[in-house]
Design a protein around this nucleic acid. Sequence first.
DNA 1: GTCTATAGGCAGATAGAC
DNA 2: GTCTATCTGCCTATAGAC
Lengths: 186, 186
Amino acid sequence: MSRTEQVVPLTATTRESILAAAQRLFTERGFDGTSLRQIADAVGTTKAAVYYHFPAKEHLLLELTRPWLDAMSALVTEIRSSERDGCDAESTLAAYLDLFVEHLPVLHMLTGDPATANHPDIGRRARTLVDSIQQRIAGPEPSDTRLVRAACALGVVHSVATLSIDLVSTHRNAILQAAVDALSDG
Amino acid sequence: MSRTEQVVPLTATTRESILAAAQRLFTERGFDGTSLRQIADAVGTTKAAVYYHFPAKEHLLLELTRPWLDAMSALVTEIRSSERDGCDAESTLAAYLDLFVEHLPVLHMLTGDPATANHPDIGRRARTLVDSIQQRIAGPEPSDTRLVRAACALGVVHSVATLSIDLVSTHRNAILQAAVDALSDG
DNA sequence: GTCTATAGGCAGATAGAC
DNA sequence: GTCTATCTGCCTATAGAC
């Protein structure tokens, strides 16, 4: 995080290897379904070594999800600061889609895990942030119809989790268009 | 299942209470995150009593998901039997949406649990069935664009999981329209 | 049909050597 | 910074009384 921001080091540190293994295993088996033993084995180390780098299993999850949650917070803050016009639902949808695509691996891990969904600093926080975005997209004092359409539009965005990153990248505009269409009418 | 098909008995049996509690807890905490102890306590009985009715924890999940999986199988079979025309994507989408709405509680339980996603008789089977439906919607030999649109259309359908049953019921046609629009172009 | 009691295992976490 | 060894507790599942 300090000076080698987005750069992947040539030699991954033990700490980074642990995080990478944890993300992969949490995605495959869920948080509860993954033991520290499995993470340690995947890295080729021991449970105690994991505990040297992280004070608890939970902190692996917090560390993995923080970048995405912080990006979501920034987006919501930005949305709120430019709250005068109510007609830029499309740009909000675009920003949300791009943020979703950028953090796809983390989201893939989260979307399928009730163990994280009820965690106050992860699932609860995420739902609050997504709700803020949904409200912004639906607009002020939305009708039921408008609420349903906003949910459909987010449903389109979330569907990228089922597609390959390649397909999402090359068809980003088509997906955004589908989301915008879902928000408008037929 | 036999003659009291959809009827809820006035006095729920212990077995039915166990299934109901399991569904609620699995939804809230996931399969791995729910212990038999918690299920037994919720019903007001003991772990051993649960084991009298079900041979293993896994069977609670199998029993809960079988109605939906069987309904999905029936839909896929029906789709395949009328395979000549490739232009009824809309009716397939409608059937899928209605099936999704009908089994919403079970789906709400499943969509958030990696423990079930990798179960061969549940998650794997479900993915196979959803894939069949997605292929049917995309049509024969689909382009990448068409594949992405089919995924977006299913994304709209799946978004009903985030809405109340009331809202979904009253706006079913609007949701279907949004799904159809996502499948077509903007 | 439902209970008590318990087996047997593995989880998360800690202490302290090196 | 990483190890071995171990603690404590809860888990699924079983055996057998009632």
